[in-house]
Design a protein around this nucleic acid. Structure first.
Lengths: 214, 214
DNA sequence: CCTACCGATCGGTAGG
DNA sequence: CCTACCGATCGGTAGG
């Protein structure tokens, strides 16, 4: 599923090590600021060796972003296990936030934290399609939750599409302000954001909601 | 106020033209992807001429980001004219959203829309301070509104700092999904976001809010 | 997977 | 504000 783009085959292990290093550096520094030399260096090989596994820097980038998006979408999807929309929404938001914060944690202290969405944007239009489709599935999962909740009367949202975008954006860029050294744990932020989002969709009080009293 | 960093003086007009071109390109493409050649080209001069007005690319970038942030913070601040917190919050959110969407509009159709926050991040720690301080003023304006509203009982927020971050993040990256060709105008999105935020802070129903019925 | 190497582009300087 | 030019780094190739 994530194997559309491929080098000349061979040792899958070192290919994976390159992919891992590349993913970390691309997320940290962005596409332009990450040199193939730096990626190769981190893996412990020389730059030309990289071209045996990937035909170009763009190719490597595409493969890295596909893997990253797959792992993200899958992780969030698997975290949403509840039956009722309120709990589902809580799980969705928390999973998104935790994944983002753990990712910036894992890649070594000072991530400049460039969003996946921005990264995807630096691909040529052609290759962007596949990734946008993956993002779309994430969006649709959320929209489905919002629509279910609205239908059975536990949420009240004026426009599920815009509301979904607002929620995702809010979660997607948590790391832009989150301080790992601060007093709040990633878990705390996840819980806090869940509550904010539940308020946002008027969970538990679906009446007189989109037009609050002035 | 925004004149801390300066070239050797002289013709202020061409300095401003450089600044304007640089701002647009930096916002569009990011720091690394914007070459001094491209900036000079857009102004209609040669790259070396640029170094008469600015001592380095970093310097030019810093000046551009300071100007951009000043205009942004000032614009939002001036838009918040109401007395009561509910209306103030509405104005704040709408002003933030509109500024962002108009900016990406103005710089010519296809902005890759890299956030100001990400741009600021690509500065060396030393120069970043001044810009973070400006962002802080924007944050504090919002926090003040939230706290006032909570005090007089029209809002209910558990943590004004996190709530403020959530709101700002949501607005800051509107352009990451907004489609100017779509059926929603920037105005529509501003109104929609205002309502979402008012729900988020439980405007008009400050009771039983942070703990909605399950 | 390596050494050796290439053309292009980068930010920036010399000198006027 | 220009021409001429520099060292460094970039992604990528040749050949093994």
């Amino acid at each position: 599923m994530a194997e559309d783009v491929q080098g000349r085959g061979g040792d899958g292990a070192s290919r994976d090590r390159i992919l891992e290093a590349a993913t970390q550096l691309f997320v940290q520094d962005g596409y332009k600021s990450t040199s193939v030399k730096a990626i190769a260096g981190q893996v412990g090989i020389t730059p030309p060796a990289l071209y045996w596994h990937f035909s170009s820097k763009q190719d490597l980038f595409l493969a890295a972003m596909e893997g990253l998006l797959d792992s993200f979408v899958l992780s969030v999807h698997d975290s949403v296990t509840a039956e009722d929309p309120t709990e589902k929404l809580r799980q969705f938001v928390k999973a998104h936030v935790l994944w983002k914060l753990e990712q910036s944690d894992a890649s070594g202290a000072y991530t400049s934290s460039i969003g996946m969405r921005d990264l995807v944007h630096s691909l040529p239009a052609k290759h962007r399609r596949a990734l946008v489709a993956k993002q779309r599935r994430h969006l649709n999962l959320l929209r489905g939750i919002l629509q279910d909740g609205t239908r059975i009367g536990v949420f009240s949202v004026a426009d599920s599409r815009i509301t979904a975008f607002a929620i995702i954006t809010m979660c997607e860029y948590v790391q832009s302000w989150y301080d790992p050294e601060g007093e709040l744990s990633a878990e705390d932020v996840g819980d806090c954001f869940s509550e904010l989002v539940l308020s946002m969709v008027n969970a538990g009080r679906p009446d007189n909601s989109t037009k609050p009293v002035a």
